[in-house]
Structures are given as C-alpha cells and as structure tokens.
Design a protein around this nucleic acid. Structure first.
Lengths: 237, 237
DNA sequence: TTTTCTTAAAGTGTCGACACTTTAGTAAAA
DNA sequence: TTTTACTAAAGTGTCGACACTTTAAGAAAA
C-alpha cells in the first residue's frame, strides 16, 4: 500500500534519497503524528498532552508545538487556548460534506485531465485499471486492495489535471482526512465491480479529450460512492 | 471594508468581545503577519529573517516560528530547511489555477445554497445586491467599492451552502491568497455592470430553488471574471 | 585583477526553564 | 453525606540560550 506517498510529493529529493537527517525534526514529527492520527493509533477525540507526547517522541515541546500548529491547519487536531489540543472527532455529517467537496474538486480535476494529460499518462492509467480488473476477477467481492486501487486511480487523475492548487489541495490537505475516515470507519466498498466500470468510462472520456463528459462522469462516480457510504451507514443503525 | 473578517469566523466570542489578552500571542501574530503579507507590507518574494521579524513584533522566535508554520500551510510563505522563509511570489499561472478552483468550489456552493439558504438569507442577499446597484448607478465605471461588494456577495453564498468544509476552505484558506492577488495586482474590474446582472440571475436561480441552474450561473460568472483578468493581463504586456 | 580559501557574522534548528492557567484532589463547612 | 474552598499537580504560553549551517567578507594564491 504505497504508490501514494504520505508526505509531500514536491520534495526535490537530494542525492541520498533516504537520509532522515537534514530533514527538520519538526517535519518528521509532523508526518509521524499525522500518520498516527490517521491510522487511529492516537484515537479520535482524545486529548493530547504536549509534555507526554514530546517525551514519547524524544523531542522538545517547542518542536512538537510547531508540528501541532500544522496539524491544526489540516484540521486533524483542534486546539483551544489554555485548554490544549484534541484529535478531531469524525462525524457522518462531515464525511458527507467532504464528498460534496470532492465531487466539485475531482470533477474539475477530471475536466482538466481530459485537456492536459499526456497520451503516455493516459496509457499508464489504462494499465493501472487493467490490473485492478484482474484483481477483482481473482478475489471477488472482498476487495481490500481495490480500496487502495481506487485511491491510486483518483490520485493519478488529479495529478493529470496539472493544476498545482488542485493537486496540493486534494493530495495533501484533504487526502489525509479522507484516509482517516477510511481507516476508522472501515468503509468497505462492495461495489468494486461497478466502480471499475465507472473508471473505465472515465478513461474513455479522457482519452477522447472530452472535458465536459469527463467531469460529468467523475461527479457521478463520486456521487455513487457517497450514496454507497450513506447506505452502509444506514445499515449500521 | 469590513463585512468579511480577516480572522477565523467560527470563534465563540467570549464575554468581552475585544479583549486582546487571553488570545494566544501566536495567533495574533499569525493574523498580523497574514495581513501584512496580503496587503504587501511585506513584499512578495522577500526573505524573512526570524530574529528581525521577531524583534519588530516584540515576541520571541519560538512564537514567531509557530505562526510561520501556519502561514506556510496557507501557502503565504515558503520555507526551505536551513535556508529560511520567503513570502510567496504571485504569478499569473497560479492566479488562473485559483480561478479554476473557485469555479469548481463556488459552483458547488451555489448549488448547495439553492438548497439550503433560508428565505430570509435570500432576501438579505437581494438587499445587498440592490445596494450595489445603487452604488454603480452613482459612480459609474470607477467602481472600487464594487470590488468589496463582489467579495461580500460571494461570501454570503458560500455561507449559504451550509457546508462547513466548503466555508472553511473558501473563507479561510483560499480567501487570503485571493485577497493578496487583488491587493498586489490591482485587478480593477471594469465590468461591474455585467457582474451586477450576473449576480441578479444567480439570486433568481437560488430563489427558485434551482440548484442546477445556480451552479451553472456561478460557474459562468467566475469564468467571465477569469476572462476579464486574462484580458487585463494581456493589456499590460 | 580574478579566483579560491579562510573565517567571522548571521540565521536556523532545537532545547530547557519559568510564569501563569486549568485541573484534580483534599480538607473544611453545611 | 454533600457542597464548597483551598492547595498542589499538571499543562499551556512564552522566552532566552546554544549548536550547527549557511552566507558574506576579507585574505591569500594564481
């Protein structure tokens, strides 16, 4: 589960790719905490004690505080003056709101991708989807990998838009919050077959350089995905 | 010029509304720096020296650093390890990208506003627009106030969407960067009359509870606005 | 005079400390 | 026994200091 990277992706990798040194402590801390929160290691709604968390990670409070300020901006933690910080509490309502956001943003991304993706990128995208198709055929229904696959697919289209603002927003800001929902709510799909087909239509539209159609299909695709979540949610009650 | 507030707008105002104390220093600093950058007081692209800036504002480097981390997340400054921070450099390309974002986001906002705005809110919006109409009639062409008026109008529709994610994103995150462009690029409109009419159509659609039409009109409106910017820009060359 | 090396100044990364605020535990009052 | 008052522990807000990195100035070599 690694095609999509956790950290920022516009880093100009220096000579040594994996040198942890030189990268500021605050930044590594930020990434670590983000991951811990997203994956539920630090449970949602839990209070965060700065001294304790700093000690656990072996850093000073100052460094931790800087990381916290950034986590707050990404809406992964909430801070109140003199009262401290808490991990956000996820809600069904917020999830629906995020789907509405995605519908607008990824719709635009698909439109732009139809205009700006290179032929090679489109081919690669088709290959990726073909792989997904095989995986679905093999292990029918219980499509765990498909979940990540879906993410990869959407990720590439956003990249294909070539709009840096859009990329930044979806792949850095919103992405982690969305991933947090996936982790914590389970969110099994049970419509991988249908999603696969919708993805194929999307590629066709992009390949035909039809921005209008690409946007339409993407929006419909995300709406379907939202309805699925709504259905799963109602089931639970 | 104040209907739209600079700072966060979801603050639960305590007993004393104007007490500067109790609000953390870092936060006030963040707001101050944000304003200074947006209004060009600290010029775009300029390097920021932490010791100097801290001294100017009479705070320690630690507090300033926390504010900087947040400014970085809002993409108002860029930081490179060991090299320091610079104010972002605005570009025509980025501005166009932001317009594309706005088209998607505010389009969705208009759609949701048509569903979720209360009748009273719609009436208020109509009143606001009527005021704009009068202002335009008075001082023809040279519509400076209209600029802020346009902002107010869009602001209210976003609020009317009732989608917190959308509101946060547009009114907190993107808003300041956009305002920075307005300040630094001048960006006179010279289409206030047309904008006024487009706004009226939008209200009509919202009033008729026609989400589809509201989104369509908003997107067209923002596209027109973008084309105007493109034209003004080509003029300059 | 131009280039390169050396070294000091400035700047960033990180830490520990202290003051003030909130929380929690305990004792006094009802 | 329940409520209120007081006090200590824990936590947050803010600061100044030190180590390491980069930048810039000046000296030595070409």
């Amino acid at each position: 589960m690694s095609t999509v990277q956790d950290s920022d992706m516009q880093n100009q990798s220096t000579a040594t790719p994996l040198d942890a040194a030189n990268i500021p402590l605050t930044e590594r801390l930020f990434d670590a905490l983000q991951r811990a929160i997203v994956e539920g290691e630090i449970p949602q709604g839990s209070k965060i004690s700065e001294p304790e968390l700093a000690r656990q990670h072996g850093v000073s409070r100052g460094s931790l505080r800087e990381a916290m300020a950034r986590l707050e901006m990404r809406k992964l933690v909430e801070r109140k003056p003199n009262l401290g910080a808490r991990v956000v509490t996820l809600s069904y309502e917020q999830l629906i709101e995020i789907f509405q956001l995605r519908e607008a943003l990824e719709g635009m991304a698909a439109r732009l991708a139809a205009q700006n993706m290179s032929e090679i990128e489109i081919e690669e995208l088709q290959k990726l989807l073909d792989q997904h198709g095989e995986q679905i055929a093999e292990q029918h229904g219980q499509a765990y990998f498909q979940k990540q696959g879906d993410l990869d697919f959407h990720y590439r289209i956003v990249q294909g838009s070539k709009n840096k603002q859009l990329i930044e927003l979806l792949c850095n800001d919103l992405y982690h919050l969305l991933r947090m929902y996936r982790y914590q709510f389970g969110m099994r799909s049970k419509r991988s077959q249908q999603a696969y087909e919708e993805h194929q239509y999307l590629i066709n539209a992009i390949s035909a350089r039809d921005p209008e159609m690409a946007e339409l299909l993407m929006r419909q695709h995300i709406r379907s995905s939202r309805r699925n979540v709504e259905a799963v949610f109602l089931e639970k009650l």
